[in-house]
Design a protein around this nucleic acid. Structure first.
Lengths: 178, 178
DNA sequence: ACCTGAACACCGTTCAAGT
DNA sequence: ACCTGAACACCGTTCAAGT
């Protein structure tokens, strides 16, 4: 089958997008790839490490994102939100890998906007924590309360949901230069 | 054995405190209580519902917390942080139950400090998301990077950890009246 | 009413053995 | 080098049957 880390990661990602995190098991993955479950462990150290790899792939578009810090974080939400239950995954992934995007880019952008280095770094940590909590909350609520309430946005219908409002307000306040 | 929701919840909580979330399984719980695994389901609808109940018990002290909004949220962190991996649990619990403490108390405190109702509610949602993301991040990092780095605080040694600094700064910014 | 016991349909991970 | 197959030690949940 020509197994590889790349193929495994890509398959895990498509399982995540199609069925959600609870369906991304090593055994399900192995079945999808037509190998025994043990075969995966030749290419990947653990499930945790695999999920970190998936998270990195998902977030890599942020590396080439133009715009200021606010736009970067809005793009972060847009990228993560459609993946239904990836919020919990990201919390873990950021703990495993502090350099997961946009963790490096965010302080750079702030410094480009004139923030001094030390407060740019502190603010980045604050903003990342807020963003992770906000998207995880938003996703969990969508999953548990109203799977029907997930707003099917006509991409032009520019009335923000309540959750989007809360996200923007938080960023606005946190990104005020002290 | 005189099983009950209260006994099951209390036992689950002590398992959580002693061994961490990954050791809180329905089967382990049943063994601890000397019953078959199925017996639990006579008293509790699902594991998710049980965890919500545990979360509620853990956070109930916040209901009798004096002090302003900032102090309330600092107490929240202190309450949750020692429970090692409860951050992920809380994210889920808040999605299942929007009234979990301090979700009701927080807007009340803000209004007592002179905030108008609508912005008190919005700010509460923002602050809760930040707090959840922050404690989950802090806990995950403590678990994965340095189980040794968990600062054993002499309760008087008043030098804040980096994580505590970040938490305070976030709250400060979010609690500025617009 | 409350619980047992067994079953169903799964997990992550390891590791000898094969090719 | 890469993978199989089987095993180990688990999961959450259901449900007939017992008391």
């Amino acid at each position: 089958m020509a197994l590889s880390l790349e193929l495994i990661t890509a398959t895990a990602r498509s399982l995540l997008v199609q069925y959600g995190l609870q369906d991304v098991s090593m055994r399900r993955l192995a079945k999808e790839l037509d190998v025994g479950p043990g075969a995966l462990y030749y290419h990947v150290a653990s499930k945790q490490e695999l999920l970190r790899s998936v998270a990195h792939e998902i977030l890599s578009p942020l590396q080439h994102e133009p715009g200021d810090a606010l736009e970067l974080m809005l793009r972060f939400r847009e990228l993560v939100l459609p993946l239904r239950d990836v919020g919990d995954l990201l919390l873990l992934a950021y703990a495993l890998d502090e350099n997961l995007p946009p963790a490096r880019l965010l302080p750079e952008r702030l410094m480009a906007e004139g923030w001094p280095q030390s407060s740019a770094e502190e603010t980045s940590a604050v903003v990342m924590r807020f963003a992770l909590g906000a998207v995880a909350t938003e996703q969990n609520q969508a999953l548990l309360q109203g799977p029907a309430a997930m707003p099917t946005q006509a991409p032009d219908a520019r009335q923000a949901t309540a959750a989007e409002q809360i996200y923007r307000r938080g960023l606005q306040k946190l990104l005020i230069r002290a």
